[in-house]
Design a protein around this nucleic acid. Sequence first.
DNA 1: GACGCGCTTCTTGCATGCAACATAGGCTGT
DNA 2: ACAGCCTATGTTGCATGCAAGAAGCGCGTC
Lengths: 226, 226
Amino acid sequence: MQDEMVLSVEAAERNGLLEKIRRLVLGGDFPPGAVLPEAFLAQEFEVSRTPVREALKQLQNEGLVEIRPKVGTFVREPTRREIIELFQVKESLEGLAVSLLARRGATAELSALRLNLEDSEAAVLTNDSEAYARLVHEFHWTIVRGSDNLKLVEHYERLMNQLAYQRLVLRTVEHPGRLAASTREHRAVLEMIEHKDPFGAETAMRNHVHASSREALTDPVQSLRN
Amino acid sequence: MQDEMVLSVEAAERNGLLEKIRRLVLGGDFPPGAVLPEAFLAQEFEVSRTPVREALKQLQNEGLVEIRPKVGTFVREPTRREIIELFQVKESLEGLAVSLLARRGATAELSALRLNLEDSEAAVLTNDSEAYARLVHEFHWTIVRGSDNLKLVEHYERLMNQLAYQRLVLRTVEHPGRLAASTREHRAVLEMIEHKDPFGAETAMRNHVHASSREALTDPVQSLRN
DNA sequence: GACGCGCTTCTTGCATGCAACATAGGCTGT
DNA sequence: ACAGCCTATGTTGCATGCAAGAAGCGCGTC
């Protein structure tokens, strides 16, 4: 199992190209709807069109780009409805993850979460949005990885890519009061884990994700108006 | 949203190849571990190696095959641990689906489920394993589609492909008494949906999936011994 | 007889060329 | 002036050719 992860990482680095293009799309270097010609990417990364094509097909499968046959490849932005749907799935998967983690009582992840919470509270006090966004990301990923369920991790990763999560978080994090509320919710989750209460942890986590999704969706951003 | 589904279906039929190869792998025509040369598939489906390659990469991404660079492509069978992990995710996703469906109170899906249950009980009485396997499949898919959450449907489809579910169900279905128990659990789920009780429905569904996973895993099949 | 080395063969990985199609812009006819 | 067509161009889709690496097999040597 561990071997597979190493292998897949190695494979990813060998390909590399997929990750590079994905970061290009997720990073917002290209505006949504922009055309993404194979020939350009091929030249950009100094490979031929063939591996670029393969990578783009994967990205289409993930829902990040749309390949219109004989027309072109376009950066795809999730619709508002898709974001709602994805958050529902996120809630479910993270609920499962934290429930499994609470059942395991894994000490390594627990201490990581405690440290994370301390840092988060410090970031709230100094109003450091950027650091907080990073810490939130880390908190959720620590829990998912802590579930010790690789398939869950894989599906979660796919989900987060589809959500283009980074872009969303960077906005919601700037809502007044949200940082403090979010941290309180994190603390509630952590306490449930410490109490080895899988059900309570799952409930707390789902409440948290639900709250965070409402924040993300009430964000009056033009690009989410479709 | 509906358009996208149509588009993706059309795209799938245009490609077709991916589905064909997937069925080949899932159908068990090739034993797990068997080599699956690009050249052979290319000749078999009368296309060149390029589209075959693209399809195989997708299947690798789904976890159905393993491409060992410069060596070959092999049919991959989920390990026992992976099956456990996948069932945990399945439990979570189907729980979400049924909860959403119960909240919607969709009448079309409800009547489909009622009919399904009647047919299932008839299949139990006549001990028609094959029909029952099909009905179970239909029951779960009706619920997932009834969630009216396309992203959930997509992730679920991916999950089921990874599980090679058909192969598993055809075995567990032959456990004595399992058919009747499974049908009772289905009825419990349906009743919760009819009562518009999302939480109760989710709980019932998760119990059902959990029970079914225990059945699948206690099945003494050689191929699951790894 | 056993071990080690090299070659042969099979596989994938990638580059390139050509064909098919969609789209946009201009041109012509009314 | 406007509508319709037609062509030019850009894009993807696919086939093919070649290179590189891995694994198995046979041969030679100890």
